[in-house]
């Protein structure tokens, strides 16, 4: 093209610098780090509550878990020659959530072991982010629970204030007899338990953030919490002496943490809305069964892990009817 003589000032695109790719050529701008760091932000209220109630020990556990998860992930990436992945933020979330599943007095080596279990056993052995069938945090939690039942079920007594030095132990409200727990304590977080099981309000704020940014499907927490509420509610009506009120059930233990932050993990939960509803329902039923009749006081972890295993089946069963699809019964080959 010899056309620059008449119009020398016109700048034309350099064809050699044009990128070719398949359509579409624009993007919504959403990416994995954005999603992951929004989740981290949603976890912050609960982290702050944990620090308020359990003091510096909480910071120690949370930091230790987060750092060990990130370090172990990068170590693994080096080992298997993958490019670094810490920037995607998924290891950070795993770390924080792992910390929230431990209690303030957890020894340092248990935190690191938990990080190892979560990252290596829970995620990387399956191929890394996106390929793990089970929630890595819960793999670690259950692994630790089975390996060190005493450490995992001894909870610090919460005490408002940062400078707590002497740890006292307390039982999880679910382990107490009905009537011994005050509802206001449960809401604010003045109860024994793991770091992430204290303040219901902080967890709810986080949940609202996740829902507002459409990072989780509302079907999962709704079905999860709703089914627990209904089942424990019926049980409470039948036998008020042995069963807590459904409100206590909802706001204590790891239920809120599980329903908003762990059952909703995208990788390990169904992709369709209908599937999410079934998934949440299944989690709720199993949790209730374990809580009411099982030997563990808490069943959220087991419930979610069990439903994680069913996720591929749920996904397969809830495939949407394609647009314009006519059932083969009418003589149409689909």
């Amino acid at each position: 093209m010899s056309d620059t003589e008449n119009t020398p000032t016109i700048q034309m695109p350099d064809p050699a610098k044009l990128i070719v790719s398949n359509s579409p050529h624009i993007h919504s701008g959403q990416n994995i780090p954005k999603i992951m760091f929004t989740v981290v932000a949603a976890l912050m209220p609960a982290c702050i509550a944990a620090v308020l109630f359990f003091g510096l020990a909480a910071i120690e556990v949370l930091l230790l878990c987060t750092v060990s998860c990130v370090v172990i992930e990068e170590g693994w990436n080096k080992l298997v020659k993958r490019h670094p992945t810490w920037k995607d933020g998924s290891a950070i979330i795993t770390g924080i959530l792992l910390g929230m599943n431990l209690n303030a007095g957890t020894p340092w080596w248990v935190c690191i072991l938990g990080g190892f279990l979560a990252i290596i056993l829970g995620k990387q052995l399956y191929g890394g982010l996106g390929y793990n069938p089970f929630n890595p945090v819960l793999v670690a939690r259950v692994g630790l629970l089975i390996g060190f039942p005493e450490i995992m079920t001894t909870w610090d007594k919460p005490e408002l204030g940062l400078m707590k030095i002497d740890a006292m132990t307390a039982a999880t409200p679910l382990g107490l007899a009905p009537g011994e727990t005050f509802f206001s304590d449960v809401l604010l977080g003045n109860i024994g338990g793991c770091l992430g099981e204290t303040s219901a309000i902080a967890l709810l704020i986080g949940g609202v953030i996740l829902l507002a940014f459409k990072l989780i499907k509302w079907e999962v927490p709704l079905a999860f919490l709703g089914s627990v509420f209904v089942i424990t509610g019926i049980a409470h009506v039948v036998s008020p002496e042995t069963v807590h009120s459904p409100f206590i059930h909802i706001f204590t233990g790891g239920l809120l943490l599980g329903a908003f932050f762990m059952a909703t993990d995208m990788v390990t939960s169904p992709m369709t809305r209908k599937g999410a509803l079934i998934f949440g329902l299944g989690c709720g039923v199993i949790t209730s069964v374990i809580r009411l009749w099982g030997s563990y006081p808490e069943g959220v972890s087991f419930a979610i892990l069990f439903m994680n295993a069913l996720t591929p089946l749920i996904d397969r069963a809830t495939i949407k009817k394609p647009f314009g699809y006519i059932a083969p019964a009418k003589g149409e080959a689909a």
Binding site: P15, K17, L18, I19, V20, S21, N22
Partner: peptide
């Protein structure tokens, strides 16, 4: 060659600008 961005597989790449 021009700058190609997409699936790193010949049979997929050939769909974009003939493989660029």
């Amino acid at each position: 060659r021009s700058l190609y961005n997409g699936v790193r597989d010949c049979r997929s790449a050939v769909l974009v600008a003939g493989g660029a």
